[in-house]
Amino acid sequence: MTTPYPFIHHITVLCADFDASEPFYTAALAPLGVIAGDRDPGGIEYWEDGIDTPSFAVGPAQPGEDVTRGVHVAFTAKDRAAVDAFHAAALANGGKERHAPRLWPEYRAYCAFVSDPDGNNIEAVHKEIPEA
């Protein structure tokens, strides 16, 4: 049975330097059709235009909270050009190279991987399922 609800509602990562993380995510996610909501002292939330769920948020870690580290988040890209644009924007806005855009046959996908300012593994993936 299919549920009308997405598998994940939202994910939040807590960053060490919000002023570094916010422009990284805003720039990197834009080529994927993901837009930024209003920025406030508690963070910023991202979603597809007109669709608020699922969403991804970035917020500053507060005293006593741990910074999110070691997480791998993969965002869907509509095509290879979007993966390439994600990669370029991420690197231009504080991201670090993990894997340049390329076809990963084992995943049947074209992907790029970067590290966010806190070292999390952030991916753009375009599934390329061969025709039967």
Rank of each mutant, 00 (worst) to 15 (best):
A30G: 03
V67M: 15
Y25S: 02
H72Y: 10
V125M: 07
F18V: 09
A16C: 11
N121S: 10
S55T: 05
Y46V: 03
H87G: 04
P63K: 09
P117H: 04
E65V: 12
G119S: 05
S55Y: 06
T68H: 10
S55Q: 07
A90D: 13
T76K: 01
A100P: 02
H87T: 06
E45K: 07
H72W: 11
I51S: 09
D84I: 03
P117K: 03
A20R: 02
H87Q: 08
D17F: 05
T76Y: 00
T26A: 15
I35P: 04
D118R: 06
E45L: 10
T12I: 09
R69G: 10
D38C: 00
G95D: 07
V125H: 02
A57G: 11
R98T: 06
M1E: 06
G33K: 07
V73K: 12
E128L: 15
I122K: 08
V73D: 09
A124H: 01
D19R: 14
A92T: 01
Y5K: 01
L91Q: 12
D49R: 14
T3Q: 02
F18I: 15
A88Q: 15
P31Q: 11
D52G: 13
A112K: 00
A77Y: 01
I129L: 15
Y5D: 00
I11T: 13
F56H: 10
T26E: 12
V125R: 02
F113C: 01
L103P: 04
A16Q: 14
S55P: 07
D79K: 07
K78H: 10
F24S: 03
E65M: 15
I8K: 09
G64E: 03
S21L: 13
I129H: 14
T68W: 11
V58K: 06
A92L: 01
A85W: 00
S115N: 11
F24W: 05
P63R: 12
Y107K: 08
H99S: 09
D38H: 05
M1H: 04
E97N: 10
D19P: 06
D52Y: 06
N120F: 08
I51Q: 12
P60Y: 10
N93Q: 03
A20I: 00
V67L: 15
L29A: 08
D118V: 06
A112S: 00
N93Y: 05
D116N: 04
D79N: 14
N121K: 12
E48T: 12
V83A: 05
A112M: 00
D17Y: 05
G59P: 12
R98M: 09
A27T: 10
P4N: 00
Q62T: 08
T2Q: 06
V71Q: 08
V125F: 02
P41Q: 03
V83P: 01
A82V: 02
E45I: 13
D79E: 06
E131T: 12
P63W: 11
I51N: 09
A81Y: 01
T3D: 02
G119D: 06
I122Y: 07
A74I: 08
A112V: 00
Y25R: 04
I11C: 14
I11L: 15
F7L: 00
D19N: 11
E123Y: 04
R69C: 10
A57M: 13
R108H: 05
K127T: 13
C15I: 14
F18H: 10
D66R: 14
G95E: 09
T3G: 02
T12C: 08
G59C: 14
D52C: 11
V73Q: 11
E97G: 05
